[in-house]
Amino acid sequence: MRVEIWGDVVCPWCYVGKARFEKGLAAFDHRDRVEVVYRSYELDAERPRGETSSVIDVLAKVYGCTREEAQAKEERVAAGARGDGLPYLTEGRDHGNTFDVHRLLHLAKARGRQRELLDVVYRTNFAEQRSVFDHEVLAELAVEAGLDGAEARAVLADEQAYAADVRADEREAAELGARGVPFFVVDRRFGLSGGQPPELFTEVLQKAWQSRPAEGADTAQARG
């Protein structure tokens, strides 16, 4: 059984949602029969590559509020993340175009290290004051995740490397009706979005397992 998760590495609820899904998966009896695939989704695709701003400034602009109000929003999200055991810094973080990060995640997928790279990218973005929009930092994270540093740098230097894979993921998200992330598709028959409680993920996994179609039967499109 396959679970596909669309998300963006700058999305705090994707960070939280991944952790909650993994808790839900751990409680699922057939977890060893579940393949988890992470898909690309950009929250700020129009932002030029290489241009970064502070997270607080971005939030203030998006929500049309003051920096103080934006800071308060971040503090509420941070409290939720910490409640799930996740480290979260509310200051000193930046925001930018994530296309290159997603391209590198596709390299990691091809090398069987996708989850490992995603984990270190999330940790770096939300819990450290290192920028995941810096190619050298990304290359270092790739090595930390078990990838070859030279290959990672070559992918980052080639703007076309894995670009088609990122765009294909994004088109598929739109076709499946994803209006935001995180977006979870279970066995191409069940869909849910947001940082849901772990128990709900376990419930959906069990439902999908129990209602699996007969071998060779067509599966329906995921529904929201």
Rank of each mutant, 00 (worst) to 15 (best):
L118E: 07
K73I: 09
A164F: 11
R130W: 04
T124H: 00
I56H: 03
R67E: 09
E74M: 14
V62K: 12
Q71I: 01
D84N: 14
G180S: 15
G80Y: 02
V166T: 09
V132H: 02
E91N: 12
R167H: 08
L176Y: 02
A163M: 14
E116M: 01
V155H: 03
N97C: 08
F99I: 13
A81W: 08
Y122K: 04
D134G: 11
A150Q: 15
Q129F: 11
T90R: 01
Q71E: 13
P87W: 03
N125Q: 10
F133Y: 14
R93S: 03
V181A: 14
A110L: 02
V132L: 00
L156Y: 05
A173P: 14
E116T: 05
G112E: 01
A78V: 06
L156R: 11
A79E: 13
E69C: 09
D100W: 03
A161E: 02
L104A: 02
R188E: 15
R179S: 15
T98W: 01
N125A: 06
V185F: 02
A152M: 08
A79C: 03
R171E: 12
A108R: 06
L89G: 03
A157P: 12
A178H: 10
K61W: 00
G180N: 12
Q71S: 11
D119F: 01
Y122D: 03
G149T: 13
K109P: 01
R82G: 07
